[in-house]
Each structure stands twice: as structure tokens, then as C-alpha cells.
Design a protein around this nucleic acid. Structure first.
Lengths: 167, 167
DNA sequence: GGTGTATAGTAACACTATAACAAAATATGC
DNA sequence: GCATATTTTGTTATAGTGTTACTATACACC
């Protein structure tokens, strides 16, 4: 893996590069990327899919660390604020942002069948939200778009009638 | 209040009309609108703003009813499925749909300052979501749009710096 | 090195939601 | 009507998610 990851790199598929990039980012920004914060971010990255707060806690403990829920939530708050992690409210899970360096509003496609989540960033959707909010004189701080449904793979496999928890 | 509420009526401001309309709707649809379901819906309507499941439970008990959480959640599932109630995932709360008769995707403007929630229905946003999902070959079942921010009233009052929990 | 601020640890608790099974109410066929 | 299947509700226990309050430690700045 390259040490010099660039902006268009898909960090999700390369945890080491993403960690390296995070190191650089926080160093440059003068923000403390402590061992605990780094470890939690690494756990989220290596999960490869959205992971719950208590799953993170469990994996911290696997690494010989005795931790309490609050530690995880504090780090999650930090990582979310720094825009390195997204929170998925509908499924109470957390996942790494694919492009943390690039400030953007994100939308999520959540498969009810296999649980996979795809992060997309659609300017049209962004604009629609901005316009809609403006019409209502509403000052947006965080626009959340979580689209539940069936992903392409599951749809193709015809799983929506069989293996899915919900159709 | 009129017994004959029509489609463009804002049910949120008139619980009695909304209940009456629900009675008619379920009678015609041949779906059982039991006393418990009706009472829960009434509690949600009269709350006038999003209300938590345990708040609903408490108010059920105020009415002399001994109930367990599961009862509330079952009724909520029913009302959501019937599209009479929306679930707000980001704040774990439930609110009455303003236009249950008209099938629509809804977007919510959630004020982090005063907690008020405005339901809007923007066709442009709907289309953007539909198009974005189609591009990803994603079959949408439920599009969730919850926009966090500061509402017009709070913004005007300059509360975002003072009274808000989060800026 | 001392002091203030930010971060993390510790313990207890509050809030949100579901599972498993029993009982009651309602619908359906005869 | 009556028996039976189905839906709804009750009962009890428990799982899952997130926060409060307070203490201790580590770091930055002077």
C-alpha cells in the first residue's frame, strides 16, 4: 500500500492507507489523534461495514483493553465531528467516511437484505435539500439521508422474497 | 370542527378531525382500528410534536391503562405501516403524518434548538432520491430524510448561540 | 516544574426496543 | 350458534443503546 494516499482513494478498501491519511490529517490540523481514537477508528475501518458501538467495545476488549461504553461514545463523537465517521441512525451503527478530506453531505443506501451500506454523494440531492430548507427558512447543520431498500446484488439474486428479514 | 375533513386538511392541528378521518379510513379499508390503536394514535396527535414510545406508554397509564412497552411498539409498527405515523430515527420519536391519505415520501426538518419538527414533502427531493438509487440499481423501500438544524423561529430569536443544546 | 485544559477511566444508571409465551378478542366456515 | 383459525393484546423478562457524574491521568503552555 502507498504511504501517499490521494483524495480520490477509496479508504474503505484500504484501512492502512486510511489510518496513515488520518495520522497526517490530524498532525497537520493540530488535533490530537490519541491511541484510543486511532484504535477505535481502525476497528471501524477494518469492520468493512457499519458496526455498532458495543461491537467496537467488544473488539477493544479483545485487544486487552478494559473499556466502558462511554469511552467508545466519546471517541465516536470526536470522529463524527471530525467527519471521519458517519452515524447511521436507522440501524444504530457507525462507518468510516470514504472521503473524509472532502467536505460533503452524504447519502446512504442501506440494504435490508444483506445489511450492506453504500455511501453516495449526489450533488442533486444536496441541492434539493438546501433549496427545500431555504424555502422553510431552515438553517441546515446536518442533512441525513438514509435510503432503506434492496441492493443490486440481493435484488439480482432474488433474495428479497427469501432471505430478507423484511421485504 | 367538521366531521367531513378533506384531504388538504392539516390534521396535526385538529386531532379530532384526524381521528374521525382515521376511523373512516380503516372502516373502509377493512382494517381493525382497535381501541388501543385509536388511543395511541390520539396520544400522538394530541402531543402536537414528536413523542417518544415511553412517553406514549406513560400517557396510556395516565388513562388508567396498565400497559407494557411492547404494546406501544406493536401499535406504533401498525400505525407506521398504515402510514399514519412517522418514525424519526435520529431522535427516537414518533409523530402523526400530516396527510396520511396521500401516499408520499416525507422529509423532516428537525430543530436542534426547540425540538420542533416540520414535515415537508418536496417532489424534487423525491425525484433526486429515486434517480440516485436507480443509478446504483438500488430498489428503494423507504427513503428517510431527516435534516437537523435550526428552525426559522429559533434562528430569528438568535437562540442558536444561547438556548441550544448544540450549535 | 507548575498550572490549566483536554482526554480517558470508573461505576452506576436511563432510555429504547424486542423475545417468548399465554390469554383474550375477532373472523370464518360449517 | 358453535368450533376453529387468526389476529390482537397481556405478561414477564431481557437485550440493546446511550448518558450522567465524578475521578484520574496525560498533555500543552507558560
Amino acid at each position: 500500500m502507498s504511504v501517499f494516499a490521494h483524495h480520490t482513494h477509496d479508504y474503505a478498501s484500504d484501512p492502512d492507507a486510511a489510518l496513515e491519511a488520518a495520522d497526517q490529517h490530524f498532525l497537520k490540523a493540530g488535533v490530537r489523534f490519541t491511541p484510543l481514537r486511532r484504535r477505535v477508528f481502525e476497528i471501524i475501518l477494518r469492520a468493512g461495514k457499519p458496526i455498532g458501538a458495543y461491537d467496537i467495545l467488544e473488539r477493544l476488549r479483545d485487544h486487552g483493553k478494559i473499556a466502558a461504553p462511554i469511552s467508545v461514545y466519546r471517541v465516536l463523537d470526536f470522529l463524527i465531528e471530525q467527519r471521519f465517521v458517519h452515524r447511521l441512525a436507522t440501524i444504530n451503527a457507525y462507518m468510516a467516511c470514504v472521503t473524509p478530506e472532502d467536505p460533503h453531505a452524504a447519502q446512504f443506501l442501506i440494504c435490508q437484505c444483506c445489511g450492506s451500506v453504500t455511501e453516495i454523494s449526489d450533488p442533486v440531492m444536496d441541492k434539493a435539500i438546501a433549496d427545500g430548507a431555504k424555502t422553510a427558512n431552515f438553517q441546515v447543520s446536518y442533512p441525513l439521508v438514509e435510503i432503506m431498500g434492496i441492493c443490486a446484488d440481493c435484488s439480482k439474486a432474488g433474495k428479497q422474497a427469501k432471505g430478507c428479514k423484511k421485504s
